[in-house]
Design a protein around this nucleic acid. Structure first.
Length: 428
DNA sequence: TCTGGGGTCCTAGGACCC
DNA sequence: TCTGGGGTCCTAGGACCC
C-alpha cells in the first residue's frame, strides 16, 4: 500500500457521557460525569462539568463538594453500552473510508488515498451522518499524518463554530506553524507526564518549538518514538495506519469493593479474572504460554503497610482452557501471597500468546487429544454463556457471592445489549 | 471511607556465548 | 604483574496512550 495522502482522526465528544445522555435525555444540558470501575475516578465529563473545574482522571471523592454544590449528575461506567455504541459509530466510519484503524473505544484514524479541496465538506457530512444515525456527536481533524491529525481534531473541538471539523491539509507552512505555536508541548500526542515538563525546562514550550528542536536534543533525550513524532510535526509520515492485529497480552485486573485479607477470597478473585481473560483469549483464537498474577495493597493508604508482588509462570502446554490457566494462576498466587496485608487489587495477565492454528500445526500428536478436548469444552462453555447470559456456567473456584466484587452504585441499564434492560418507548 | 483498566513500545541491564 | 569485548536474547520496569 502506498502512503495515504490524507489522514483523519475521528473522536467522539465526551463519549461515555454522550452514551448516557442518549438514553437519559434528562442529563442533557446538565453537568454530568462518568466514573471508572469501583466508582473511583472520573473518566468522562460533559462540557458543563469541565467548566466547573472537575479534573479528568481525578478521584471522585475529592470533588464531592463541587458535585453537591452544583448538582452534578454521575453514573457508574457501563461498558457493554459504550462498546455497542462504539461499534455502531465505527461501522459508519468504515462506510466512508476503506482504511480505518479503530484506535480506541471512541477514536478512529481514517486514511484517504487522495487530497481533495473539499475535504472539510466531507468532514461535515461525516459528522452529521454519525450524529444522525447513532446520536453520538463527533469531531474530526484532517492532516497529512496522524500526529497533525490529532492536533487538528483537538482544534476542531475547541472551535465549535467550525462544525466539529478542522483541516490542516491545505494549510501553508506559515499557517501550520501558527497552529503549532498554540499547542503546549505537553498536549502533543506522545509527550506525557515526564517528557512534557522536561522539554519545557529545555525551553521547548510548544509543538512549534518541538518541531524545530535541535537534532542533538532529539537524539539524546527522546526515544526513537519521540524522534518519529518530531518528524511528523515536520510533515513526514512515520506512523502508518495500523491493521487490526491480535493482542500480544490479555489482562484482567480489578480493585475490590473492600480490602481482602483472606487468601481464599483472593483466589476467588483471581479465578474470576482468569475466566474473563481466558474468554477474550479464545475470542481471538490464541493460546497463552505465560500467566502472570499480581496482588497489591492500596498504594495511597497510610493506615496499612504496603505490599506488592507479581509472579509469572509458564503453563505446561500453551492453552486457552480456563481450568488449566487457573491451575497455573493459583500456583503463581501461592508463591506471592503473604498473610497479614490488606489487599486492594489483583490482576491476571496472559502473555506469550500464539495463534491456535500455528500451535496445533507444530504439535507432534503428544497431548493433542487433551487439547482438542479442552477446546471443545471451552467452546461449549462460551456458547452457553453467550446464549443464556454471562455467568450461566463458570468455574466453581470463582465463588458465588463475591463480596469483594466492585462497587457500581449508579449504573445505567444496558439499553442496547440486554433484552431485560431494553429501552421501553411508549407509543401513544 | 472513597484514587480505573487494558494496552503498546522502548530501554537498560543481566546472562550467556564465543 | 597483566584477566576482553562484542553480540544476542530475555526480562523488568518505565513512559505513554485512551
Amino acid at each position: 500500500m502506498s502512503t495515504p495522502d490524507t489522514f483523519a482522526l475521528v473522536d467522539c465528544n465526551n463519549f461515555f457521557v454522550s452514551c448516557e445522555r442518549l438514553f437519559q435525555p434528562e442529563l442533557r444540558g446538565k453537568p454530568v460525569v462518568v466514573l471508572s470501575n469501583n466508582d473511583g475516578c472520573i473518566v468522562s465529563r460533559s462540557g458543563e462539568a469541565k467548566k466547573l473545574g472537575i479534573p479528568m482522571g481525578g478521584a471522585f471523592y475529592k470533588v464531592r463538594d463541587i458535585v453537591a454544590r452544583h448538582g452534578v449528575c454521575w453514573r457508574s461506567s457501563n461498558f457493554s453500552l459504550y462498546g455497542d455504541l462504539s461499534q455502531r459509530v465505527m461501522r459508519i466510519l468504515q462506510s466512508f473510508a476503506r482504511d480505518v484503524e479503530v484506535y480506541s473505544v471512541d477514536e478512529a484514524f481514517l486514511a484517504f488515498p487522495f487530497v481533495r479541496e473539499d475535504i472539510e465538506d466531507v468532514g461535515r457530512l461525516l459528522t452529521r451522518q454519525v450524529e444522525m444515525w447513532t446520536g453520538i456527536p463527533v469531531s474530526i481533524g484532517f492532516a497529512p499524518n496522524k500526529t497533525l491529525a490529532k492536533i487538528a481534531t483537538d482544534r476542531a473541538k475547541k472551535h465549535p463554530a467550525a462544525g466539529g471539523v478542522c483541516s490542516l491539509v491545505h494549510a501553508s507552512e506559515e499557517q501550520r506553524n501558527a497552529v503549532l505555536a498554540e499547542v503546549p508541548v505537553g498536549d502533543v500526542w506522545g509527550i506525557g507526564r515526564r517528557m512534557g515538563p522536561f522539554l519545557m525546562q529545555q525551553g521547548i514550550q510548544t509543538a512549534y518549538d518541538l518541531k524545530h528542536a535541535p537534532e542533538w536534543l532529539v537524539r539524546k533525550h527522546l526515544t526513537v518514538q519521540g524522534a518519529r513524532l518530531v518528524r511528523e510535526l515536520r510533515g513526514d509520515v512515520c506512523f502508518p495506519l495500523a491493521r487490526t492485529v491480535p493482542k500480544k497480552t490479555i489482562a484482567s485486573t480489578r480493585s475490590f469493593r473492600r480490602y481482602i485479607t483472606d487468601k481464599r477470597e483472593l483466589a476467588e478473585a483471581i479465578a474470576t479474572y482468569v475466566g474473563r481473560a481466558a474468554r477474550r483469549l479464545r475470542g481471538q483464537s490464541s493460546y497463552a504460554s505465560l500467566v502472570t498474577v499480581y496482588i497489591r495493597t492500596n498504594p495511597f493508604s497510610t493506615r496499612y503497610p504496603q505490599y506488592h508482588k507479581s509472579a509469572t509462570v509458564a503453563v505446561p502446554v500453551p492453552t486457552a482452557s480456563t481450568p488449566r490457566l487457573l491451575t497455573s494462576a493459583l500456583a503463581a498466587l501461592d508463591t506471592i501471597f503473604a498473610p497479614g496485608f490488606h489487599y486492594q487489587k489483583a490482576g491476571v495477565i496472559f502473555s506469550g500468546l500464539l495463534p491456535m492454528h500455528v500451535w496445533q500445526r507444530t504439535l507432534w500428536g503428544e497431548g493433542e487429544a487433551e487439547q482438542e478436548q479442552d477446546d471443545a469444552l471451552m467452546r461449549a462453555l462460551d456458547s452457553m454463556n453467550k446464549k443464556w447470559g454471562d455467568g450461566t456456567v463458570f468455574v466453581a473456584r470463582q465463588g458465588v457471592q463475591q463480596p469483594w466484587s466492585m462497587r457500581q452504585d449508579h449504573k445505567s441499564r444496558r439499553y442496547t445489549t440486554s433484552w431485560q434492560e431494553l429501552l421501553h418507548v411508549k407509543i401513544s
